[in-house]
């Protein structure tokens, strides 16, 4: 999933400092799963903002709505009713950064702000802990590395084994960060595939990654 986390409340307060009436929009997709921007978090952020503004002596009206998803035009339709019937100063989205961009594209004259920092494509390790697993390079080759991704999980995206900074299974950048190459080595060892690690992996083609420019998928079989 796309993992995000809330921006600091101070940053969000600064974004809405000039406004008295905003619409706060959550998303029931990935950011609900990672406890960052679902219905519950929308309620919590709305309360926090209202309390902070009340303390400043300048109350703010915050309406709340949580969409099925903010990355599909058909669900953005759900904003028609609240936005057309209210004169909001701005919309604050708690989706990943796709959401505020979709809202901005739909409502050309409306100010839109992100309440989350979209962090990475990853998964949860335990309750309250998430980690990055994929960098969306667009040409998955993890089967060559014991089904672990060195592009996303090695600090240097190395393709030919652990660098000289791998120590005790940890990466040189932090004792909190696993050396994915050590994990790959251990797994290849268990799988009896260490011989594969002796091959030199040559240049990666990054054209399928962000380096090739903004990406788009067109599925002719699904287009109407």
């Amino acid at each position: 999933m796309v993992v995000g986390e809330s921006k600091p409340i101070e940053e969000i307060l600064a974004m809405v400092a000039d406004f008295d009436k905003i619409l706060l929009t959550g998303c029931k997709g990935c950011v609900t799963v990672c406890n960052a921007g679902g219905q519950k978090e929308v309620g919590i952020l709305a309360s926090a903002l209202k309390i902070a503004r009340k303390k400043e002596g300048r109350e703010i009206q915050i309406d709340e709505v949580t969409l099925e998803r903010q990355c599909d035009p058909e669900y953005i339709d759900q904003l028609e009713e609240p936005i057309n019937n209210n004169s909001y100063d701005a919309v604050v989205s708690m989706a990943c950064s796709v959401g505020p961009q979709y809202i901005a594209a739909r409502y050309e004259d409306l100010l839109v702000f992100p309440a989350l920092n979209t962090t990475f494509i990853g998964g949860s390790l335990e309750h309250g802990v998430w980690a990055e697993f994929c960098q969306a390079c667009g040409a998955c080759g993890i089967h060559n590395f014991g089904a672990l991704c060195p592009i996303a999980r090695c600090a240097k995206s190395l393709l030919n084994g652990p660098c000289g900074g791998s120590s005790g299974g940890k990466c040189e950048i932090s004792p909190e960060t696993d050396c994915v190459w050590h994990l790959i080595y251990d797994r290849m060892n268990r799988l009896g595939q260490l011989d594969k690690m002796a091959n030199v992996v040559m240049f990666k083609d990054w054209t399928t990654s962000r380096d090739g420019g903004p990406r788009k998928i067109v599925r002719e079989d699904l287009k109407q």
């Binding site: 030919n160 652990p162 791998s166 120590s167 050590h182 080595y185």
Partner: peptide, 12 residues
Amino acid sequence: PFADPFDFRVTR
């Protein structure tokens, strides 16, 4: 030679 995993160092 002092980085880990040691057994991979000669392979590298």
